[in-house]
Design a protein around this nucleic acid. Sequence first.
DNA 1: GATTCTTCTTGAACATTGTTCATTTTCGCG
DNA 2: CGCGAAAATGAACAATGTTCAAGAAGAATC
Lengths: 206, 206
Amino acid sequence: MNNVQEESLRDQKKFRRRLQILEIARGIIATKGLRSLKVRDVAEAAGCSVGSVYNEFGDFDGVILTVNRETVQALTARLSGVPAEDPVRQLYGLAETYLDFFAEHANLLRSLFEHRMEDDRPYPDDILQMVMDAFALMHPPLVRALPDADDVQIALLSRTLFSAVHGIISLGLEERMVAVPPQMLRQQVTQFLDAHLVGLGVLPAR
Amino acid sequence: MNNVQEESLRDQKKFRRRLQILEIARGIIATKGLRSLKVRDVAEAAGCSVGSVYNEFGDFDGVILTVNRETVQALTARLSGVPAEDPVRQLYGLAETYLDFFAEHANLLRSLFEHRMEDDRPYPDDILQMVMDAFALMHPPLVRALPDADDVQIALLSRTLFSAVHGIISLGLEERMVAVPPQMLRQQVTQFLDAHLVGLGVLPAR
DNA sequence: GATTCTTCTTGAACATTGTTCATTTTCGCG
DNA sequence: CGCGAAAATGAACAATGTTCAAGAAGAATC
């Protein structure tokens, strides 16, 4: 067993193909939705056989889950880039960044939140954990904004607040429903945070 | 052309079978999730051929959509039963009733919110409208609680608030994620409304 | 009630799509 | 080069949605 990166030709090709399959699958989900993702389409676009997809990902859910995993990672990266100088500003920033990200990658986020496993197989824990971690990004600014609050309470509040924002955005961007104009949705989110932060005593009443 | 209810034997059987198919489909979705719903299972359980299912509902989406339609109707009925004496109490009641209904029929609501049509076929307008109408049930109590606010603003606020509650509940009941204990979730929703109503000036600051 | 007509029902056949696996090909290594 | 391990292949299979020609059942007419 050699742990050194061998960079063998075989591994290179395998890796390249893996990336290619993921890129193609992601593209199809993003543009045509998860339901339009087909093994054969992916294999053909990647220039390989369906067997290779299975060889690399185990089953088709494996492809979807890997795309979903990368979606959370990209989301977390974006959210982590929100400036942390002012905690209140950071909270608004997180919500607006989530809105932007959701608007840019609506179908990818739907895949993340709506995909169900076959039968009763469990959803991978690491993905769930990453989603929870992303939602916990409101924790630090909330701690700073509410110095007297219990840490456990803040953890719960963080999850609640982010879930609320998620609900507003995911339903607001639901093009199935009567679409909310993007600028209106932005205002909706802001006003929501306004009211809630006032209610929490973080902002003064108007 | 005779408009009188003929109640022909044929129509009776047709109607009975229709109800039976829907009941079976609903049961499968509710207990095993939308992804486990199969035409053949439904047909067999209903004691008819797959062709009859198609004859009655056009395609399989038709079955799902009809179940979803009835789910919104049931939801609306439940929400409409919330007492309207005190507007503030009514708002809490709507949120808690939504929580109860969601907890009782989690898979049915997921089917409603997560089902996507094949290709680019549009989701039926009447269902979307019914969902919006259900979410608008917060409108009347909000008008009473905020007498000075613009009606259009209230309409938006109603949708925002209900969407937020929906986000908290749907993610909170997401057993894929680390499950939130039901009683904890109830408290989460209540505390959320507390803070938000304070922020709106409906309730006094603590 | 028999006959005809209409409509519905049936289920086998087909289409689509996920999955498997024996065979072939490719690659690393001596 | 030749051998063996690993991977790639794609035809076959399995599961599932969809169609439709033939038959059954009910309605309509006499």
